[in-house]
Write a protein that binds this DNA or RNA. Structure first.
Lengths: 134, 134
DNA sequence: ATGCATTAATTGCTTGTGCATTGAATGCAT
DNA sequence: ATGCATTCAATGCACAAGCAATTAATGCAT
């Protein structure tokens, strides 16, 4: 693999990512007042309900999913809590930890936003939709 | 293509991007005191020398390459100028426009940083290097 | 039990980014 | 030539992100 190939692969990846994030950001913000990262966290929490009986997650467990620093995630969760989409609670077995779980409002908002996200992703990632992405 | 496939493709793309940017940021910063975006702009300028005889570019021409807003690019160029890597000059034919061109220091810094960038990209994008990325 | 290193999460601070606005220059229509 | 919409780049402002320091709790060694 030549340098040129590596670089062009990287630029393609990078441009693709930027385009998708930009679209997602606009659409999610406009239709659901959610940022991309906010949606991501709600998404992980919804997914996790299947795994965790009570739907509660440690902050660090969420960090693994979204590519954010610890501090960014902490503030993001604070914003989500302020918006009423999640709740934070102490975990009894390790009192340093904090449990995060969805509220009804959070579940609802996520379910509303999900189709929007899927639509944008399809527009960019569906093989044949490259031409129809108007 | 199922929703699940689209979403997992997106997550893979996203995680890949985040990992590469993170590594690039660290390595470029540590070894060359350059941010990823800063390097990108220098890189475009160097490339462009082949195309433009005098190596001068309009700000908006650079904007096409890097995925940044116009204002972000404006400030980025200001930072690069302050660091002595580029110069801004009026363009005579359209006095709204601003020409940007590399200085010697900019060319040198870019040539020093280039191998670092290539190394990081290879580590992530070379097929066989997945295991050897220590 | 006490001290010390470690881990979880939050907070202070700085910086980079985007949106909207501004200021300047251009081009076009009248 | 004059007026007006448009374009280029810079700037005010608000906000999100990362790093480093902080606070609180845990675990381990003595």
């Amino acid at each position: 693999m030549t340098d040129t190939e590596v670089v062009s692969t990287w630029r393609e990846l990078s441009a693709r990512h930027a385009a998708i994030v930009s679209d997602l950001e606009r659409e999610l913000q406009e239709h659901h007042e959610l940022g991309v990262s906010e949606f991501e966290v709600l998404d992980r929490l919804v997914e996790g309900i299947c795994l965790s009986p009570n739907g509660k997650f440690r902050v660090q467990e969420l960090a693994a999913g979204v590519s954010l620093s610890q501090s960014a995630l902490s503030r993001l969760i604070a914003r989500l809590e302020k918006s009423g989409f999640v709740m934070r609670s102490m975990c009894s077995d390790d009192r340093r930890g904090v449990f995060v779980n969805l509220t009804d409002a959070g579940r609802i908002r996520h379910s509303e936003a999900l189709p929007t996200q899927r639509r944008v992703l399809r527009a960019h990632l569906e093989p044949e939709s490259a031409a129809t992405t108007g």
